[in-house]
Design a protein around this nucleic acid. Sequence first.
RNA 1: GCGCUCGUAGCUCAGUGGAUAGAGCAUCCGCCUUCUAAGCGGAGGGUCGUUGGUUCGAAUCCAACCGGGCGCGCCA
Length: 587
Amino acid sequence: MKNVVQSIKVQLKEAAVKSYGEQLKDVEPVVDQATNPTFGDFQSNLALTLSKQLKQPPRAIAELIVANFKADENVTEQPSVAGAGFINIRLTREFLESRLNEIRNDERVGIAIAAKPKNVIVDMSSPNIAKEMHVGHLRSTIIGDSIARTYEFLGHKVLKLNHVGDWGTQFGMLIAELKEKFPAALTQAEALPIGDLVTFYKQAKKHFDEDEQFKARAHQEVVSLQSGNPESVKAWQLLCDQSRKSFANIYNLLDIQNLQERGESFYNDKLAQTVQELEAAGIAVADQGAKCIFLDGYLNEEGKPLPLIVQKRDGGFNYAATDLASIRYRVDKDRADELIYVVDAGQSLHFEMMIKAAVKAGWLPSSVRAKHVPFGLVLGEDGKKLKTRSGETIRLSELLEEAVQHAREDLDGRMSEKGRSESEEWKDAVSRLTGIAAVKYADLSLNRMTNYVFSYKKMLSLQGNTAPYMMYAYVRVKGISREGGVDFQKLGDSARVTLQEKAEFELAKQLLKFDAALEVVIEEFLPNRICEYLFELSQKFNQFYEACPVLNAPEPLRTSRLILCDLTARTIQAGMNVLGITLPERM
RNA sequence: GCGCUCGUAGCUCAGUGGAUAGAGCAUCCGCCUUCUAAGCGGAGGGUCGUUGGUUCGAAUCCAACCGGGCGCGCCA
């Protein structure tokens, strides 16, 4: 429908110029979805915006523009003027029908592939080695994956990077603890006898906080690791491998594919040079022993300039250095056109400064779009932030299992209610899909900026605007094809959509709005707009389903409705796929 | 103190310059001999935090204030 809006804009502009001459040759008419379907399909406020400039009442302007509007009669009807001077435009039935007939055999349900594919990097998930992944990582993973999938669907080339916390001072502590408690692991390799890395982390931390000698050994280990001592490196690798296994388990459950690990350690050998160059260019300066970048307008609590520290007083590099090195690498080596960081909103200031610093250093050309995509906090039922270290962390694997369990109970309940019976295998598969989908959808359907109140009850609810609602609309279509023995791919070349009932028109129009919903995701990074779109589509389908019998309809209406069903199912599938959600054929 | 962010129906939230502010949940009423009722139809429910300003027009933009959250030099 993007093209339609575009051509209406052009037509409006031509009509405006014809009405008022060359003074309007630069107007950019705004055309929006009609706010109320009774007005039509699109509306323009062009006349209202021109009122001042032309010194005429908006209604008069609107009427003249409409009189000079040359409608493409295959697409829109002649516009009308309403209210204060709105120009209302209605699509013709012929257009809707022909557009649907055009896309009905299109695997991409009418969504064009980007003319100029971009290299897009999505920085997402980023858990820390030896720590439990928490709900914040879940958000980053789900939102990042959805953004990545949307870009991919639109034909862009996406590199999903997992910037895992696999480097830094905490490793000294961990390695020292490992050497002390499990020295055998260093020589015999293979299995590391720590089942639970998180408990191990806590022990090490406790040891570190309470034992001064241990603390000293831990610091020694950091130096040793960073200088490449083989034994320390080996210990580090053991820890990382152990962690990767638990991450992989989560990613597997969540169906996260092609997430490439490129952790902080990857940039280790690039940090010194990065800082040197910043210093040489006069961008980083020494301050209180540390090397800092000062940017205009950033002040600390005392009102003094706030630095972005790239090298600590003790000579160690911190994450600003790593992030700057990573920008360079992504721009120069990966040839990225877009850098997207899906990281919680608490780091907004860091990303703001970091991106500005990169621009200042000339490492981020204006042709590259670098965006922090922040999201709100995950709160407990008490409304307070769920923290990683203090208090009990909710294990993601348990969370996901619980979601699946809940979906299973719901399914069993419906089975016995309806007297249905299905194999264990089938019930397992469906409840797994449903449970995971419910968790993902609960997260994606919210505007990412709002704080997320973590609640099993809400997250796992299968009522309302949830993944199962979309699944249900989808399986209803599949049910029709099963029941009627219909193969949607074999409806024949002469099969045509013809629209009659109101519900059919509503559904048809909604089907054609998919492109606009996808567009928002890559412009504003708001996957919830896809959810909103899919929810409306499913609602309109359910209304159609109630109002319009399909299998018992006379031909050619039957075939026409079958096409609408098929297009709906495939659009829901494409949309859910972009959200990272897989659909069952029956439920 | 400064910065960012949020404040919309009982609850959870959409909506960021347009016409009468929308969903879901919850509450109440109706619809299964017809393609899966995880559905559909209907009802009630709002000073869009407050006050000013800009505009033909503001939930939306600006300012001030109130309230919640987060961040603000050597963790990441």
